[in-house]
Design a protein around this nucleic acid. Structure first.
Lengths: 140, 140
DNA sequence: CTGGGCACTTACCAAAAGGTGCATACTTGT
DNA sequence: ACAAGTATGCACCTTTTGGTAAGTGCCCAG
């Protein structure tokens, strides 16, 4: 009775170096802005650096660039440098990146569906420990 | 090529304090072990602390407890203390927590489906900057 | 000629996240 | 009696993360 079979067995334990697929995924998108960047680019198609910065405005240049480089190194986004004189570069998703972005959709929907709950949670958090700020990011 | 209808418009911009639902969600599951805990409990049903620890073995007691408390405070898991003499406590998901766990399924599947890619990525990361370790976590 | 934007880069720093280890109160096994 | 297991709490310290500020070339508008 302890464990019926509530949530389906979507996680095969015992994989290479990860406890499960979720574990593997998390290691790739761990970074304060990665999920957001992926998602944003997924929606807007090739996006210029400046656009991203304005979109994810809580992030600093340093962070954005850093995360973008990692995403690029991880084969999730593709950087295109037009080598024009006023610098021009844009970022787009690789097939891998797109598939990940799709997997993020449910999370986004969850967030929208439970906005109220999330907001209450945050109100309480703020009440408990003041002086809190910052944005999201998938742990690390 | 640019943006067919890749990822649908599941993210309504301009929400209360978040850029989108994804943003909101991320703020709730940001924590190195939260997604894993949620997922694990979702699969096993009410789980005792000791089980969790053995399951997510890369996490330390401190971390586990801390994350569990946050998840509890955020109304995602429910802690049940049987107040027995050899301490006995177990954690289960609230409806909210279960729905979130479901939203995590795609990420888990993605991880399994792209295990090879993820592994290659990590091999390269290790090669680039040695002395790296640690587990996942959803940013912060 | 000055200011501003683009796309970054670098250096320096503060804060947060995470890890280790010890302690607790009580019971059970050896 | 002693080690071990249970579920945490706490102090201390290191690593990682993230932010700030300033600089770089180059071009265009005023």
């Amino acid at each position: 009775m302890s464990k019926t079979s509530s949530a389906g067995p979507a996680c095969t334990p015992t994989l290479p170096g990860f406890t499960c697929g979720l574990d593997a995924t998390l290691r790739v998108i761990s970074g304060k802005w990665k999920p957001l960047i992926l998602y944003f680019v997924a929606q807007g198609g090739p996006t210029r650096y400046g656009e991203l910065r304005r979109a994810v405005r809580d992030a600093s240049d340093k962070m954005l660039i850093q995360q973008l480089k990692e995403l690029e190194a991880d084969g999730l986004v593709k950087r295109t440098d037009y080598k024009e004189i006023p610098p021009r570069v844009d970022y787009s998703l690789t097939p891998l990146g797109e598939s990940l972005a799709q997997a993020l959709v449910p999370l986004c929907l969850w967030g929208e569906a439970n906005l109220e709950a999330v907001n209450r949670v945050f109100a309480e958090r703020a009440a408990a420990g003041a002086a809190r700020s910052g944005a999201p990011g998938l742990s690390a």
